[in-house]
Design a protein around this nucleic acid. Structure first.
Lengths: 243, 243
DNA sequence: GGTCCTTTAGTGGTCTGATCACTTTGAAAC
DNA sequence: GTTTCAAAGTGATCAGACCACTAAAGGACC
């Protein structure tokens, strides 16, 4: 177990590599095949390794969505604060939008624009599934920004975080897109973010992104009383207690 | 395997509960004890259960540090550049320092101050293990900031990220603390960050933190040519290629 | 009566060896 | 040349045994 993870982290085993047969590996590591299999199955659970029947054991490249599934199971077991998760998202996105200003290609910007157009269309209607589509388009816009950074780590963290938010607080998130006046405010801010990115003005982009999360926080706070998190200018919590 | 996770997610099994003995459970689920153990060990890897020798199998509440270990292993397999990881750190810390301004207690601030004092002491000497101690004190200072936010998710992500940086780029990181003039620049910035946090001035704190990472990036760039990452004002990379 | 030690039952940890199931490969049959 | 099928290599699972650890019951000693 320890052996395999350290081998992988040291880079001696790389995604796609095939491990030696179980029987052989067990002899080398001086453990029984049963014990080795316990470790392999455990690593398979983490998606570090894939056991293919009749073929062998392969080192795999964990996909972000797989990671967020694991995260979901784990965090669903602890008293996670949605505000905490949301704050992590704010942190990632406010910096991501700066990197986007530097690295976004024309294609990236087109993708963001399409997402906003889709969001606009949803805003006109007010059907029952309105929130669903709006949330999707919103997510597409923000994903486009993060992915345009070209930073694999940020993308990875972001997808894990948003996966969590989606699963755990889906209803509350959707409700944001059912509140009438939120559309106007959000769409305006979105447009200005895109504008700033296109102008490669990262200070402005970051400032508007921060403002964006403030707007969300305020809308949620106003309409739900509890749906608040600590974004940049919004401070629902007092100082922590010593301890 | 499927059985246990669904039982847990459904809430029928709760943290602290003890499962039936392996032999008994294996009979009930119609699998051999070996197969059951493979599943249990896999779940143990996710920290969903804990196998206590001589006692039994217990459902556990995952601890953040264990999660971040797993997370770190997974991230380490992503094709990320060290600049990418560093940028994620910048993102987390620049927002964390804002939250620190709101939530840090007197104890938190004392802890930061002690870390800086320790850092000062290291600066005076110039032994061979100087870099080691300096890096440790530096890490303590930054950890204190992130932990003072009271945001479990941020702490979690931060420890995963820094764990990665430490493991994968230890030497380069240490070298920063062996460069003579870096001490002066870094210590000054550290002091000003602490000052801003104590004054609860989050805009200033965030600005100085950003500057801090700029300083690091510039020092590394100057002394190593390659040790650069994209911090807020420092832009080593051109626009991404359309892909 | 109380304290300490030993024993014992219950449990996870590991090992061994066998058998089943899946995949690929290459030889044989056509 | 194509198809068929048998064999080799591999993971999947099983059964049974024994080891190691823990806690509680029981007895020995003070």
């Amino acid at each position: 177990m320890q052996f395999l993870t350290s081998e992988i982290e040291a880079g001696r085993l790389r995604p796609g590599d095939r491990l030696k047969p179980e029987r052989e590996l067990a002899v080398e590591l001086n453990v029984s095949r049963g014990s080795l299999r316990e470790a392999l199955k455990a690593l398979e659970m983490l998606n570090v390794v894939e056991l293919r029947h009749g073929l062998g054991v392969y080192v795999t490249l964990p996909q972000p969505q797989v990671l967020s599934r694991i995260f979901g199971t784990l965090i669903s077991m602890q008293p996670s604060q949605s505000e905490d998760i949301m704050d992590a998202r704010v942190a990632l996105e406010c910096h991501a939008v700066r990197l986007a200003c530097r690295n976004a290609t024309r294609r990236d910007i087109d993708r963001m624009r399409r997402a906003l157009e889709s969001l606009d269309m949803q805003a006109g209607e007010s059907g029952s599934r309105n929130g669903e589509h709006g949330a999707e388009a919103d997510h597409e816009f923000h994903s486009a920004i993060v992915e345009s950074t070209g930073n694999a780590t940020l993308v990875f963290l972001y997808s894990a975080i948003t996966g969590l938010l989606k699963r755990g607080h889906h209803e509350r998130w959707l409700s944001l897109f059912s509140i009438q006046d939120s559309w106007l405010a959000l769409n305006d801010v979105h447009e200005r973010i895109l504008e700033a990115i296109a102008a490669r003005d990262e200070d402005r982009a970051a400032a508007i992104m921060a403002e964006h999360f403030d707007v969300i926080a305020k809308i949620l706070a106003k309409h739900q009383g509890q749906g608040r998190f600590a974004s940049i200018a919004f401070r629902p919590r007092g100082p922590r207690q010593p301890g």
